[in-house]
Simulated scan of single mutants.
Amino acid sequence: MTSHPYSKLPPYAYWHHAVAGVPAADVDPVVEPPFRFGAREKIAAAGSCFAQHIGRYLVAGGCNYLVTEQPHPFLSEKAAQALNYGLYSARYGNVYTSRQLLQLFERAYGRFTPKENYWRDGAGAVIDPFRPQIQPGGFSCARELDIDRERHFAAVRAAFETLDVFVFTLGLTEAWRSREDGAVFPLCPGVAGGEFSSAAHEFINLGVDDVVADMSVFLEGLRSVNPRARVILTVSPVPLVATAERRHVMVSTLCSKAILRAACDIIERTCAQTAYFPSYEIIAGGFTGADYFEADRRSVTREGVAHVMGIFERHFIRRNLMETALRKTRQALAAPSASTDAISEAMRLMCDEEALERGAIPAITESPDGGERDPSTDDAG
């Protein structure tokens, strides 16, 4: 038998040895990360809803999870949680897209100030268009929002300048932006404050080149203020709540995830000190044989999160800092007396995107060509 490039590859290169012949809980698609970190190194996180799991597990595992935006001392722990403190390293809420992340950096350093900087809700409260659900009930006035925003930007700068590792979870490619200056919103105007206008707002769907360009500029900016920063990119396995494209939401979900995954591959190959972690493949790939989605087919099960974070710990953390936390989690899952309500509460995520479905009952009407038309997408460009 002649020798060829596939003759003596390591086991991880062969499907049977790496996937088909491995128990679901033992499937590990990480091979050789470019770096690891230890107990003292500061880890910051941002991204879509799934990124919240990463922060929680890092805290539970004794890692140095960086939180630079702290609540006022007079706030109780419960009140601080209600105001979304500690959800991420700073109180920026969900950062779904590469464009949103780049914009956050530019706004924090005074390089960009959007024209549409305030929204109102139905009760007259002032809403931050770029953190529309971070402050339940909104702000009492524009001045209160300004003060909070100044404090927030200082915390964002502190996070970027002092972190050792930045974990960013890309979630979406679809977004809405201002036609006036290109400012991108985490939610379509009108969903959780503000008023939608097709004359003022437009729909965009980022492509691979867009995501790569956004992230390249962001990474350059991050390393200009923090040369030692290392970055771990992930893609959220959570499907879209809704799509503004004129196609099935499942098709839009797979298209968005494919774009994000391809962009991460390019960024990992071309940007130094940047790694990719395959949380998307573990959860949504479907190849492990385990079903890691809840009944709604969006929420990730606690078993899925434990699988992802166990692999993350194994490859990226120098010492077994998370061993105790992971063992306790597995014991809690196996215990017959485990409180489902308590576990569900611990797994609860703040997800801006879910506001798209609140009270929405899609009305299907007949289109001029005899097909069906969904009026909710009429302004989707």
Rank of each mutant, 00 (worst) to 15 (best):
Ala346Glu: 15
Leu233Met: 14
Leu321Phe: 01
Gln81Gly: 10
Gly359Ile: 08
Ala20Trp: 02
Phe74Tyr: 12
Leu9Asn: 07
Cys255Gln: 13
Phe312Pro: 01
Thr162Ala: 10
Ser7Pro: 07
Arg269Val: 05
Asp352Asn: 10
His152Glu: 05
Glu281Cys: 04
Phe153Pro: 02
Pro375Val: 01
Ile259Ala: 09
Ala25His: 09
Ser3Trp: 06
Gln133Val: 13
Ala325Pro: 03
Ser89Asp: 06
Asp378Asn: 10
Pro114Tyr: 12
Ala244Cys: 14
Ala284His: 10
Ala60Ser: 14
Phe203Gln: 13
Ser98Met: 03
Ala123Gln: 15
Ala158Cys: 05
Arg330Glu: 11
Arg107Phe: 04
Val31Cys: 05
Phe312Lys: 06
Ala338His: 01
Gly193Ser: 08
Ala200Glu: 13
Arg40Glu: 14
Cys141Asp: 14
Glu202Asp: 13
Arg330Asn: 10
Arg246Glu: 09
Leu333Trp: 05
Phe316Val: 01
Ile147Gly: 03
Tyr6Val: 03
Val241Glu: 14
Arg36Tyr: 03
Ala263Phe: 13
Ile266Asn: 11
Glu41Trp: 13
Val308Lys: 10
Lys42Leu: 04
Thr2Asn: 12
Tyr85Gly: 00
Pro186Ile: 07
Phe196Val: 04
Ala342Asn: 03
Arg177Met: 13
Ile317Leu: 10
Gly304Val: 01
Gly110Asp: 04
Thr243Asn: 06
His53Leu: 12
Pro375Tyr: 05
Arg314Phe: 04
Ala79Trp: 02
Thr274His: 09
Glu195Asn: 15
Ala154Lys: 06
Gly61Lys: 06
Ile54Met: 15
Arg56Cys: 02
Ala200Asn: 09
Val27Ala: 03
Asp341Arg: 15
Pro136Arg: 10
Val27His: 14
Asp379Leu: 11
Pro186Tyr: 08
Pro71Phe: 07
His72Asp: 11
Phe166Thr: 00
Val167Gly: 00
Pro227Ile: 14
Tyr280Gly: 01
Ala229Leu: 12
Arg149Cys: 01
Val156Trp: 08
Ile204Leu: 15
Val225Ile: 09
Val184Ser: 09
Ala13Glu: 05
Met309Cys: 03
Ala360Ile: 14
Arg40Pro: 00
Asn226Ala: 13
Met347Ala: 06
Leu326Tyr: 08
Arg298Cys: 06
Gly122Asn: 08
Gly38Arg: 13
Glu174Met: 05
Gly62Trp: 13
Arg358Asp: 02
Val308Ile: 07
Phe50His: 02
Arg298Asp: 05
Phe293Lys: 05
Thr2Ala: 04
Arg120Cys: 09
Ile54Tyr: 14
His17Ser: 11
Arg246Trp: 05
Val212Gly: 00
